[in-house]
Simulated assay, not measured.
Amino acid sequence: MTVIKLAKEYYREAIKLSEYAFQYKVPEESIEKRLQMIEKHHEVYGILEGDELAAKLHLLPLEVYLGETKLKMGGIAGVATYPEYRRSGYVKEMLTYLLDTMKKEGYSVSMLHPFSVPFYRKYGWELFSSKLKASLKSEDLIMKKQTAGKIKRYKKETHSTEIEEMYAQFAKQFSGMLVRETSWWQESVYDELTAAVYYNEAGEPKGYMLYEVKNSKMKIEEFIPLNPEARNGLWNFICQHDSMIKELEIITYENDPLLFSLNEPRIKAEITPYFMVRIIDAESFLKSYDFLWTDNEDQLLLNLSDPHASWNNGTYLIKNQEVSKLSIKETETLSGKGLSLNINTLSTALFGYKCPLDLHQITHIEGSAEDVQKLQMLIPNRQAYFYDFF
C-alpha cells in the first residue's frame, strides 16, 4: 500500500468518503465551496485501491501559541477509511507517512480531535486540553459591580480586527491556542454567532464573548476578558438577558475565575478531555522551549522513546540552559540514569496539561523523585487550552 498526496481531481471523492464515514451530507449547492476550502487550506493524503480512493486524511498547515512563541502545527482531520478496507493498517500507514512528512517540512507539533483517545495514543498523540461546560439558570444571573464601559455587538459581516487582537493577547497566556488568521475567523469561528465586545471608558477594547441566543437559551462559545473590569462588564451584559433566557451555557477552560466569582458557584460544570497533541521533532522542540532556567548547575537526562518517529528516540541532556541530544556512545555510559518517558508523556507535560509529579505517580515517567522535581521546576506554570475545532 502506498500513501500519496491526492491531486485536486480526488477532492470530490474525499468529500464522498467523509460523507459515508461520518454519516452526513454536504448539500449540492455547498459542494463547490467545500472544494475551494479544501484546495485553499488542506493537504489531502490517501491510499488508492486501483483508481478508487480507499482511505484518506487531511493535513491543515496551521500555527499555535506556546506562550509568546508561535509553533508550526499540523492539524489532522477527516481521517476515514471505507469499511471494506478497515483493520488493514491503512490509517497506521497514513499517520506514519504524515509524521515523516511533517518532520521534513519543519512542523513542530501536530494536533487532532480524536474519535478514540486509545487509538491515537498508540501513535504518540496525547491529551493536552479539556473543555469546561458550565450550565446555569436565569436565577444565577446576578449582576456584579457596575462598570463604566460599554458593549458593542458584531456579526461575521461587521467583524472587527480588534477582536482578533484581543484573542491573540489572551491566547499567549496559554499553551496550544490556535493562531487565527482573519479568514479562519470568517470561515471557522463565527458561523451564526454574535460577538459582544467590552470597551472601557477610554474606548479601548478589553474583552469579548462569542454567543448565540436561541429557544430561551444563551450559549457562550468564547469568553475572553483581558482584565477584571472586562470580565464584570461582559458578565453584566449576560445578566441583562435574564428576561430572555431560562438557561445559560458557557464553554471555557478549567480554572476560569469567573465561575468562582458567581454569587452561587455550586453550578453544574462538566469537564471533558478535548484535543490531543504530539511533538513531531523532539530535539528542535526541546531546544526552543521556554524552560524556566535557573542559575544552578544541575543537569537532567530525558530518555525518550517514540516507536513511530524513530528520530526522536534517544537521550537528551538538559544542562547550563541548553538542551543537547547525546550520541549513542554517550548514552551507553549513562545507562540507568535520568528520567524515562515516551513522546506522549513529554508532549502533555511540556504543554502543561499534566505535571511531571502526577505523571510520575501513574508511572508514565520513571526515575527518581529528585529528577522529576527538577523537570517540574523547569516547566512554566501555563495552562493548556484549545478553543477551536477541525
Results as ranks from 00 to 15, higher is better:
residue 251 I to T: 06
residue 133 K to G: 07
residue 309 A to N: 13
residue 165 E to C: 02
residue 180 R to P: 06
residue 213 V to N: 05
residue 208 Y to S: 08
residue 310 S to I: 12
residue 390 F to R: 04
residue 102 M to C: 02
residue 231 R to Y: 03
residue 373 Q to D: 11
residue 143 M to R: 13
residue 372 V to I: 13
residue 79 V to A: 08
residue 262 L to A: 01
residue 202 A to F: 11
residue 324 S to V: 12
residue 242 D to F: 06
residue 77 A to R: 04
residue 240 Q to A: 10
residue 107 Y to K: 12
residue 91 V to F: 12
residue 98 L to T: 12
residue 374 K to T: 05
residue 33 K to A: 14
residue 24 Y to M: 07
residue 4 I to K: 14
residue 355 C to I: 13
residue 136 L to S: 03
residue 320 N to D: 15
residue 171 A to P: 04
residue 303 N to T: 06
residue 63 E to P: 08
residue 210 L to P: 07
residue 106 G to L: 05
residue 258 L to K: 00
residue 71 L to N: 01
residue 374 K to N: 09
residue 321 Q to R: 12
residue 162 E to Q: 14
residue 126 E to Q: 08
residue 266 R to K: 12
residue 194 T to P: 01
residue 156 K to Y: 03
residue 385 Y to C: 04
residue 97 Y to A: 08
residue 378 L to Y: 04
residue 280 I to N: 04
residue 172 K to T: 11
residue 121 R to M: 13
residue 142 I to L: 15
residue 193 L to D: 02
residue 334 L to Q: 07
residue 74 G to I: 02
residue 218 M to W: 02
residue 87 R to E: 12
residue 358 D to N: 11
residue 361 Q to G: 12
residue 212 E to G: 08
residue 74 G to K: 08
residue 224 I to K: 02
residue 377 M to D: 15
residue 73 M to Q: 06
residue 302 L to T: 12
residue 112 L to F: 05
residue 343 I to F: 05
residue 267 I to M: 05
residue 110 S to N: 10
residue 129 S to W: 03
residue 235 W to V: 03
residue 18 S to W: 03
residue 299 Q to E: 15
residue 146 Q to A: 15
residue 56 K to E: 04
residue 239 C to L: 10
residue 318 I to M: 06
residue 353 Y to V: 04
residue 37 M to E: 14
residue 60 L to M: 13
residue 18 S to H: 01
residue 191 D to T: 09
residue 125 W to Y: 08
residue 138 S to N: 12
residue 297 E to K: 14
residue 102 M to I: 00
residue 374 K to E: 07
residue 256 D to M: 10
residue 308 H to G: 04
residue 309 A to L: 15
residue 59 L to Q: 05
residue 268 K to M: 07
residue 248 L to H: 00
residue 362 I to M: 15
residue 123 Y to G: 02
residue 149 G to P: 12
residue 224 I to C: 05
residue 193 L to W: 04
residue 353 Y to K: 01
residue 390 F to I: 14
residue 373 Q to V: 05
residue 77 A to K: 02
residue 8 K to H: 14
residue 49 E to N: 15
residue 19 E to R: 10
residue 83 P to Q: 09
residue 336 G to E: 08
residue 99 L to T: 01
residue 247 E to Y: 09
residue 305 S to D: 11
residue 88 S to H: 15
residue 126 E to S: 08
residue 107 Y to N: 11
residue 372 V to D: 00
residue 73 M to N: 09
residue 380 P to I: 11
residue 28 E to Y: 10
residue 279 I to K: 05
residue 242 D to V: 10
residue 160 S to K: 07
residue 206 K to G: 15
residue 152 K to M: 13
residue 159 H to P: 04
residue 319 K to R: 11
residue 141 L to Y: 01
residue 233 G to Y: 07
residue 337 K to Q: 15
residue 211 Y to N: 06
residue 58 H to Y: 14
residue 6 L to K: 04
residue 366 E to R: 09
residue 200 N to F: 01
residue 364 H to D: 10
residue 119 F to R: 01
residue 188 S to H: 11
residue 383 Q to L: 14
residue 340 S to V: 11
residue 284 S to P: 03
residue 150 K to V: 07
residue 55 A to M: 00
residue 208 Y to H: 06
residue 23 Q to M: 04
residue 187 E to S: 13
residue 33 K to H: 11
residue 46 G to P: 02
residue 252 T to N: 06
residue 158 T to E: 07
residue 256 D to I: 10
residue 142 I to C: 11
residue 284 S to N: 13
residue 366 E to C: 07
residue 321 Q to N: 13
residue 158 T to N: 07
residue 292 L to V: 13
residue 208 Y to T: 06
residue 240 Q to S: 13
residue 55 A to R: 06
residue 164 E to F: 02
